[in-house]
Simulated assay, not measured.
Amino acid sequence: MPGAGADPAEVTAFLNRGFGEAIGLEYTELSADRVRAQWKVTPALYQPWGIMHGGVHCAVIESLASVAASLWFGDRGHVVGVNNNTDFLRATRDGVLFAEATPVHRGRTQQLWLVTVTDEQDKLVARGQVRLQNIAETSALGNG
C-alpha cells in the first residue's frame, strides 16, 4: 500500500479493488494520524426498505480504521481488525457521506480507532470503533 502522504487518488485506486469499488469509497486525506474518505449513497447500497444498508457503515468504518492503522504501523508488519463496533444513528437515502478515522490508542500490540460518519449537513450519521492487532510476523497470518 502506498504510504502516508501518498496521493489520495493513487491510494483510492490501490484500495478500491472489489468491495471498495462497489461502495464507491474515495479517500481524500491520508496520514498516520487521520484518514478521511467520502462516498455517494446510491440505490445499489440500499437495504430492502430504501435506506442505506448498515453494513456499508460497518465496511467503511473498518476500511478507514484499517488504512489508518496500517499507515501508522508502516513497514513493521500488517494490522488486522479484531473487533468492529458500529452505531447507526441516522438513516440515509441520498447525498454524500464523509468518514474520518482518528486514533484512540496506538500500542505495541494493538490499536483502537474511532471513525465518525457525517452527512452533507455535518450531522452525525454513524460512528464506530475498530480494534486492530499489530502483526509483526506476517508469515503467521492465515496459518491456523
Rank of each mutant, 00 (worst) to 15 (best):
M1E: 12
M1S: 10
M1H: 14
P8Y: 05
V11L: 15
T12S: 14
A13L: 14
F14L: 10
F14D: 11
R17N: 13
G20I: 02
E26F: 03
T28R: 02
T28K: 01
E29H: 15
S31T: 00
S31D: 00
D33P: 06
V35A: 04
A37H: 06
Q38V: 03
K40V: 11
K40L: 11
V41E: 08
V41R: 00
T42S: 12
L45T: 04
L45D: 05
P48H: 07
P48N: 04
W49D: 12
C58I: 01
I61A: 00
E62A: 06
E62N: 08
L64C: 01
A65H: 02
A68Q: 14
L71E: 06
W72P: 04
W72N: 04
W72Q: 12
W72E: 10
H78R: 15
V79S: 11
F88G: 00
R90C: 08
R90K: 15
R90A: 12
R93M: 02
D94A: 14
G95T: 01
V96S: 11
E100P: 05
P103R: 01
V104W: 01
Q110H: 04
L114T: 05
T118H: 10
E120K: 07
Q121T: 09
K123G: 11
L124D: 00
L124W: 02
L124G: 06
V125E: 07
R127S: 03
R127F: 00
N134S: 10
A136E: 13
T138M: 03
T138H: 04
S139I: 13
A140H: 06
G142A: 03
